[in-house]
Design a protein around this nucleic acid. Sequence first.
DNA 1: GTGAAAGCGCTAACAA
DNA 2: TTGTTAGCGCTTTCAC
Lengths: 349, 349
Amino acid sequence: MHDVARLARVSVSTVSYVLTGARPISQATRDKVLAAMAELDYQPNAMARGLASRRSRIVGLLMPMDERGLGATETAFVTGAAAAASAAGYHLVLSPVGAGDVDDLRRLASQRMLDGAVLMEVQVEDGRVAALQEAGVPLVLIGRTGDTTGLSYVDIDFEQTVREAVDHLVGLGHRRIVYVNHSAATIAAGYGPAVRTRDAFVAAMADHGLAPIMIPAEDSAAGGRAALTAALAQAPDLTAVLAMNENAIFGILGELATRGHAVPRDVSVVSMVTSPQVAELAHPALTAMTSPGSALGRIAVEALLRHLEGAGDTHQQLLPCALEVRGSTGPAAGARDRTDPAGSGPPVT
Amino acid sequence: MHDVARLARVSVSTVSYVLTGARPISQATRDKVLAAMAELDYQPNAMARGLASRRSRIVGLLMPMDERGLGATETAFVTGAAAAASAAGYHLVLSPVGAGDVDDLRRLASQRMLDGAVLMEVQVEDGRVAALQEAGVPLVLIGRTGDTTGLSYVDIDFEQTVREAVDHLVGLGHRRIVYVNHSAATIAAGYGPAVRTRDAFVAAMADHGLAPIMIPAEDSAAGGRAALTAALAQAPDLTAVLAMNENAIFGILGELATRGHAVPRDVSVVSMVTSPQVAELAHPALTAMTSPGSALGRIAVEALLRHLEGAGDTHQQLLPCALEVRGSTGPAAGARDRTDPAGSGPPVT
DNA sequence: GTGAAAGCGCTAACAA
DNA sequence: TTGTTAGCGCTTTCAC
């Protein structure tokens, strides 16, 4: 920096101000400095800047990494967030910090490495929130904790998303619709998406004067198979499945095929919060509620950066998923012979 | 730190030495200092340490993020790497830097934020390597560039992996085996895994006196369907498919089902470099070559840290995938009526 | 085994 | 509009 200043025949502070833009610099001077920087291939030292300014210009994206991996949906969060950070001159670092290893996070935060953080896969009770708040690190959630007072978040509008999915199916004439959620344990733990979609499903069905049928499923193909078996036991006359569980969906499809139920002729299937890539993996391709992936990431980072600039108001926003009709939904079959039509109301002839 | 020193009645340098372990400290003094640090809930400032020591204690995991997302395999790399870094007192930050945005990387590197880097999804010609080398940032690859002279890497032993897969199938009596690779464009671009497995397949088949049949496939379910169609056209009597393409595999399975070929009764399927999670998604579950995911990440970071400590030798290592037999492979059907047995050698009676 | 003090490369008052 | 300079919080010689 010294060298740049000398070459441009200005003081080091002028070079610094050109860099930070913290005070007006005449065009002539700025050009000289810029030329010198280019000439010397100068790059400011991040540590020194961080120490002097007390801002690292790094924001963390805290992203639990379980063995399941990242779906296309989560990846979209990341790319959206990274783009937004980069555009604002910040570095976005991903940190595989889950709700479990809060200690790791506490250290990271106390060491003043992070100017702020975006939390993914937020739990109802999420230790990471308190850890960051105690360390004085501004944060924005993707998802929601139980109590969001004073917290900024961006989340999927599950109510609206479920409603749209149900409307789509009801519009096709379906009346016996099963909702396959996450596992019972997950729901009991109060996992937001599971709880909210459950409640929304009950409400949406009620609006159509229909009875909700709901089945939990473990996050695996086997879980999906078991869930469908349970669903058929409970509602042999079901004509549509709405599934929240991206891991179980393939099991559901497999079990439907095994039992000779054709999709969408016999049973229509809608997958929630699913990326187009995953939807295309199935055959027929899945009608799905596509999550606003990169938009969520971008908005979260933009809100965070606004906080860093000192804007004190909290940002709370919900975005719906978009219905994308593919091959897995069709008109409800009218009368069909089933092994046991009981429980579906008066038998259809 | 000043406060810690005063409370412990030692000098700041002593506190620093307790922190870094750069010189012997008597047990009594160390205890006093540690007690003071705990008392004051002291956390050293990462920026200041980085500036003074010229080492950030951050290593980057450079991980291209395309829209497909991260598979379970890549996730295992990450968790393995993060664990290894954390154990050594380093922070592992993931950076979504692909072979494309080298400029971003160049900036990151020149700003001295990274003590070192691990590169994932390395291309044959990967601009990231030169960018890091020019910036003087030590690096380790997961995968390999075309010329690995002087570079450290950890990669999958594709030769051995393909050999084991072929041996498994031949051991079951299969002789007409089709290899479904990545797309022709990917192979032409010299993508390592595609090229290496192709060559290994030819060699392994030759060892058994068999003729290799190979079909490229786009990375999608549709690509898999097309590939299987092409394969059946070329070798109507095929009894086994070995697939490298995790995205195409579901299309292959779907097309087999559509055509009425049962797995594994009519056709056996082996999936390469596949995580157990994905293998379990299919029905029947896929016999697969499971990649040594977390081990790759761990070994890469350990090698990198050794470089940071000044060890100058390059680390080059190959790890094979492990064969995990599930439901998608079985004995080759002997004689079966096919539409066209021609091209399979003398007809079997 | 410990302490004193000179930076690390920048930013941001303060001064002009 | 620009220059001067005192730190930012630590590490690491150099001295004892």
